[in-house]
Design a protein around this nucleic acid. Structure first.
Length: 473
RNA sequence: GACCCUAUCGUCCAGCGGUUAGGACACCGCCCUUUCACGGCGGUAACACGGGUUCGAAUCCCGUUAGGGUCACCA
């Protein structure tokens, strides 16, 4: 950390200056003359890793913050991995997170094609250029790029200035750019594409930091101005190990399947390695876009914390509009065979909104609203309904409420308390049996609100059903 | 092994030479309460270690240790 401080102040702009105020600084991460162009360049492996998603997110935030262009490039040189399904996973994941791209395989754009598998002629041309200039040599059929044996300095927007010494050939052997079968090596096509696509800023995982000087050498040999680099820290497992496909929280698909609102996952990812520097955590994405800055990105690898992600999910749900909540809930209701267009849907959903962490919970929480044939929880029946007098309370309450007007939570509460006071007994002696009578459960929404949403007819009918079911027994 | 990055509560962040080291998650109490929650209040808990520099260091420098990354005819 000590070192970082100095480097940062030396090479990144001071935090108190905004871009607008200090556009001329030589070390400004953004040259005003060239609009920002960033890219996310995943390889279609069949799943989208959280680390990759966050890299995409940071690129997207940077582009949107600077009014730049976000390019999606598919690095599918490995034919094995190149399937339509694998590509779809990337599209789905990015779209789910709300990360829209301006140029890409499907979106098109002036610098396409955007899949490496379709850019053969371009690579061929650059290859020729390198070979003609004497930077390449044949090594058993493969082509190697001859490094300049000197110190290469990487001036990273996040990491500061780092020197890599290429003097020792043993330690830094010349890299292969093309295999004997004619296929290309990542470093080469990556650099060629960044040149061709006019990429101004490369924001990628820290695992590429050590590759950067090699890329810089390629840029120099090709006579191209390199982009600015910003290497973001990796996301680790809670135990500090590298996160891989099977680890919990690793796959974006997992969040979709487990019922996280996409904006919640995105919010959590924003906070992993970046901070607004005040204590805000729950932030609309527009606010993050407005404040995002590479200078505020951390250097430390972040341990993934699903509990925090869950909290953000619950908070996000709690604070979202009823329209958005309904929209997110509907697929899960449908999946459970519940109606998605009931007139009282919003009212029903609102009853448990503040308790939901995952959208997957919703259907079960509200299922009893949609059928008069709901089951009774045996434990609840045993504990509460079998108690002496419990059924009498239900009967009394039913009679007292039969003529109640209007049928709303406040009036119901007043009436229930009045009836209890007349007995006299605690309101709880009515509340618990009544809850089970109308829902079959000991746990659920606030009783009065639940009764209101259910409506008088159904409440009284459910009281009757309960009495009929357990009185005789 | 070589090279590179990193090091503040268990976790995520704040801290930019002088702070009772702050916030959030998690955890533990208490309050609210008809259940489950939400919410409110409070608590436990950290500067990895050792040397410097300085009147003064979590903050600057060096080293050690630990973690991570890269050293491919993977991406």
């Amino acid at each position: 950390m000590p070192r970082r401080r100095q480097r940062r102040t030396a090479f990144a702009r001071p935090r108190e200056f905004t871009l607008q105020r200090a556009p001329r600084a030589a070390t400004s991460p953004v040259r005003m003359s060239s609009p920002v162009r960033v890219r996310f360049a995943p390889s279609p492996t069949g799943y989208l890793h959280v680390g990759g998603a966050r890299t995409a997110l940071f690129n997207w935030l940077f582009a949107r913050h600077h009014g730049g262009t976000f390019v999606l490039r598919i690095e599918d040189t490995d034919q094995q991995r190149n399937t339509a399904e694998a590509l779809q996973v990337i599209y789905d994941g990015l779209r789910w997170l709300g990360l829209d791209w301006d140029e890409g395989p499907d979106a098109g754009g002036p610098h396409g094609p955007y899949r490496q598998s379709e850019r053969q002629t371009i690579y061929e041309r650059y290859f020729q250029q390198l070979r003609d200039a004497g930077h390449l040599y044949d090594d058993g059929g493969a082509w190697r790029f001859r490094f300049r044996r000197e110190v290469v300095e990487v001036d990273d927007l996040i990491c500061g200035r780092i020197a890599f010494d290429f003097a020792n050939v043993e330690i830094m052997p010349d890299m292969t750019v093309r295999r004997p079968d004619g296929s290309w090596i990542f470093h080469f096509v990556n650099v060629v594409d960044d040149i061709e696509m006019r990429i101004t800023h490369v924001i990628r995982g820290e695992d590429h930091l050590s590759n950067t000087p090699k890329h810089l050498q390629l840029f120099a040999a090709l006579g191209a101005e390199p982009p600015r680099y910003g290497h973001i820290p990796l996301i680790l497992n809670p135990d500090g190990s590298k996160m891989s496909k099977r680890d919990q929280g690793a796959s974006i698909t997992g969040y979709t399947e487990n019922g996280y609102p996409p904006e919640a996952v995105r919010n959590y990812l924003c906070l992993l390695g970046w901070s607004p520097k005040d204590d805000r955590e729950l932030m609309p994405i527009e606010d993050v876009v407005a404040r995002f800055d590479l200078a505020n990105v951390n250097r430390k690898g972040a341990h993934f914390d699903l509990a925090k992600c869950d909290w953000i999910s619950a908070q996000t749900i709690q604070h979202m509009s009823s329209e958005r909540y309904r929209e997110l809930a509907q697929p899960w209701l449908a999946k459970a065979g519940l109606p998605t267009d009931a007139p009282s849907l919003d009212a029903v959903l609102a009853l448990e909104k503040m308790k939901v962490t995952h959208l997957t919970e919703i259907a079960d929480r509200v299922s009893f609203f949609f059928t008069e044939d709901f089951p009774y929880d045996p434990a609840a029946v045993e504990k509460t309904l079998r108690k002496p007098g419990a059924l009498d309370r239900i009967r009394q309450l039913g009679e007292a409420c039969a003529a109640l007007e209007p049928w709303d939570a406040a009036v119901l509460e007043a009436k229930l308390k009045e009836v209890a006071a007349a007995v006299p007994c605690k309101p709880a002696e009515f509340i618990h049996p009544a809850r089970i009578a109308v829902s079959g459960r000991a746990v659920g929404p606030s009783l009065y609100h639940m009764l209101e949403v259910l409506g008088k007819e159904r409440v009284l009918a459910r009281f009757q059903r309960t009495l009929g079911t357990f009185d005789a027994a």
